[in-house]
Nucleic acid binder design. Structure first.
Lengths: 123, 123
DNA sequence: TAACTGTATAACCACTTAGTTATATTGTCA
DNA sequence: TGACAATATAACTAAGTGGTTATACAGTTA
């Protein structure tokens, strides 16, 4: 396999990449994305689903939409948001995998003895 | 192909994921990672490479290291940092691809005419 | 028209963060 | 030992962020 040589990115490019990461660097926004992954949803319903207030959710929705991750559809009085860029979940999955590995390694660091079933342990 | 159904993540898990994104949500840290991708480097050399001050770079290096992305090796007086988690570049690449697509779409929105070689254009 | 509903925005606050300057810490060498 | 070099940390500042409350705006219905 060939190791790819990467050309350095410009400062502007790095800013754009950082900005995209920043959008995902908030638990509430991740929660909203997670809810929307199951399908389109209105603002009020979303607010209840993520246990936050309507204005707060509206703000986050705007951020997500301006980042191109959400689509907006208005029907009468209510506004429905949906995932427009499913690649965000690939990013989340990648992070999750790394974290899972890390935790697995961490867990083993806590037990110096080989693991036995609970029933075999002395109390 | 089967569409994976995802189980919702806990709030704590989302916090961890968000924290990891937050580490990458800074242009200077991305720049440092980019320099280190070419190989291990000392703090002062890094500071010069990324055109920042030594204390600032030290701070960012600490953040990256505590996130498990960098390894630290001390040799005499100087400290060498290196990439310990190459998966960060997968994340960056994924973001770059998305941004590239977005810009391609944007670019076409600016030209309503089919693209001709420069030599063919009237001045 | 007026009342009501759903969403967006404004104003504000507490908190965090990236950067700077000054200083402490640690290791090397004379 | 003392002088020096490389890194880390402390203290501070300016700017940004997530949340709340109040209010504006738009669409529906009576």
């Amino acid at each position: 396999m060939t190791k790819n040589k990467r050309q350095p990115m410009s400062q502007e490019a790095l800013q754009l990449v950082a900005a995209r990461f920043k959008v995902l660097a908030d638990p509430m926004r991740l929660r909203i994305l997670q809810v929307l992954e199951a399908g389109e949803n209105g603002v009020s319903a979303l607010a209840e689903a993520v246990e936050s207030t309507q204005p707060n959710v509206s703000k986050h929705l705007k951020i997500l939409q301006e980042a191109g991750m959400l689509a907006r559809r208005q029907e009468g009085n209510t506004v429905y948001y949906s995932i427009s860029d499913p690649t965000v979940f690939e990013l989340c999955d990648a992070v999750c995998s790394t974290l899972a590995e890390r935790f697995a390694a961490h867990a083993s660091a806590f037990s110096t003895q080989p693991i036995r079933p609970v029933s075999n342990r002395r109390r």
